[in-house]
């Protein structure tokens, strides 16, 4: 830990389009990294639309938030909420009653510089959009991960975000393709991971299969990566290892293959 001091890494999770899974990704990467013995803080930068707390099951423990820290009502340490199971994982929640202008990019740089001294990873959950909130989350980033779904609107917005990230010299961003339905990809009815990386010309860091367990996990406030049986959870754990510099092969995304598909595989060999 001593050698790591001052070297905490700021990872920003962003997307352009809303509803593609930024908050779920932030929560799961936070959990997965903490389980790899990293000291992690996840920060909800979506001021006014606080959500990371409920996804992590910490909504009842909030006393102070990010805006309290920025405006000096609370010390940074007081706003850190410890995760229930993982003692090395913390959350800084967003303010619920304010808007994005309560925080500036400079504030975020200052706060993350403080956090870098204590944590190995500082994961920023960016709001959707390309305005102030996005710029706040981007300003301190060492690494940017873009979450998208294999759908035209999400991919188009991801491309817009990639351009803005490059313009701010924060690139190259890496891509997390979320909610992939492999059976649809196989039928040619959903963009494949290769299609999406061809279009966006950025590198993949993770492919998350569609997984009903993600919804149950959100319902319970227990990130899905704590569920060993979940494929999505496994995919998040793989991303965490890649973030730590490990080379982890992409897992084969099998659909729920039926008898005929297995039979076909025998014959066609694919």
């Amino acid at each position: 830990m001593a050698a790591n001091q001052m070297r905490g890494k700021v990872v920003t999770i962003t997307s352009g389009k809303g509803g593609v899974g930024k908050t779920t990704t932030t929560a799961n990467l936070g959990v997965a990294l903490a389980r790899l013995d990293q000291k992690v803080v996840v920060v909800d930068t979506d001021i006014g639309l606080r959500n990371l707390d409920v996804i992590m099951g910490l909504e009842n423990r909030i006393v102070y938030d990010l805006v309290d820290v920025v405006e000096g009502r609370s010390k940074l340490k007081q706003a850190l909420i410890k995760h229930k199971q993982l003692p090395e994982l913390y959350l800084i929640p967003a303010a619920q009653t304010r808007d994005k202008t309560a925080v500036s990019p400079q504030d975020m740089i200052q706060i993350t510089n403080e956090l870098r001294k204590e944590f190995d990873f500082i994961i920023l959950d960016s709001p959707a959009g390309i305005e102030r909130g996005f710029r706040n989350a981007l300003a301190p980033a060492d690494e940017v991960l873009i979450v998208t779904n294999p759908e035209v609107s999400a991919v188009r917005d991801a491309d817009r975000i990639i351009g803005l990230i490059e313009a701010q010299n924060k690139g190259p961003a890496k891509l997390i393709l979320n909610r992939v339905k492999m059976d649809m990809v196989k039928r040619g009815e959903m963009l494949s991971p290769t299609d999406v990386t061809d279009i966006l010309a950025i590198k993949l860091i993770g492919i998350i299969p569609e997984d009903e367990l993600v919804v149950s996990a959100s319902n319970n406030g227990i990130p899905v990566t704590l569920n060993e049986t979940s494929k999505a959870g496994m995919a998040y754990r793989n991303i965490a290892r890649r973030l730590m510099g490990e080379s982890v092969p992409f897992m084969p995304l099998e659909s729920n293959t039926g008898f005929f598909q297995r039979l076909a595989k025998l014959f066609t060999g694919d």
Binding site: V152, R156, V185, E189, L191, A264
Partner: peptide, 21 residues
């Protein structure tokens, strides 16, 4: 038999995206 369509909507999506982007 698998209902796999090599000219499915995914290839349309890809072409449309490449054009618009």
């Amino acid at each position: 038999m698998l209902g796999r369509n090599r000219e499915g909507s995914a290839s349309t999506a890809k072409q449309r995206l490449q054009f618009v982007l």
